[in-house]
Amino acid sequence: MNSLKSVVVLMGVLMLVLAACSSGSNGDSTSAPAAPVAPLSTVLNGVPGIVDPTNTGWPRTVDVLNGLVTIDAKPERILTVSLGHDEVTYAMVPASRVVATGSYTKLAQHSNVAHLAEAVGAITLDAEQVVSYNPDLVIASPFTKADFIDALRNVGIPVVQTKLHNDPDGRIQDIILLGYVYGEVDRALELADEVRARYDALREVTGSKPVSDRQRVLSLTSYSDKIYTAGANSTEGGIIEAADGINVAALAGLDGNPTTSLEGVISMAPEVIFIPQPPDSGEPFREQLLANPALAEVPAIKNGRVYVVPNKFFTTLSFWNLRGAEHLALLLWPDDFNSGEFVGFSFPE
């Protein structure tokens, strides 16, 4: 009987120890002390996609674009298929936990994490190739084909398909959701605070401007004679709004990234034009715009306010767009930013 008591007591102690371990490694940091459960669950409670905000252990379940997905353990071999997700992922986890990225992520002209992604493999959307990297989690975008996701599921690899947003609140939620998926909620909250603080700093400047001072802004890119603009619900449109400009393409009723014409540019009468494409093609396009006599009366052309901007800040879809908004705000309000220099975002140590 005594020995039975001893066994029961021992098991109880063991369970308490295990519970403590589980709480201490609540999935969000391997070495940090346990975060207080109540505040954390409160934060997680407001994030769409997190099924049980009180569950900070493993397994954990998220409700995402491809349905309910359960992740059994903290992912250590992460593979993502879109540039935006890659940028959020590298900001959240040590680079050693990423096993492969999309090929676009490796191009420094387009990607803000190219320096981190250069060491890992590049994938196409071939399921077998993805399997060859032996990932324990794949992150997919809304554009990833359903059969690709199904193929990975069938071989037992969990796939989390999420949409990345282009508004400030949506970006914060994207960061926290992926932080939860990766078991890096602490780091996610830290990054969310960083992003939020920079949005606030930007708003502090732009928000002080009278409405009448808001400038009419147009995003243009040109590839092989065709001219594209950015209307409502576009990444560049979100950046214009974040910089407190007036997106004239959205004002003209355009949505997404349709083609337009030089005559369309005249009719939209922008005061500022920015060209988010690499300098080797962006500069010649800028010169064409400035030299075209038909555009001479367009305010942006007349005043020489046509700028080629780093496309990796403007065309990716991640919180790095905030860096683009800062860049644009500096062009719109050059006297209001003391240093005129902005830095990148932090990465996990």
Partner: peptide, 9 residues
């Protein structure tokens, strides 16, 4: 083509 959804095309 150039007028139906102007200023897009």
């Amino acid at each position: 083509a150039r007028t139906v959804v102007q200023p897009a095309e």
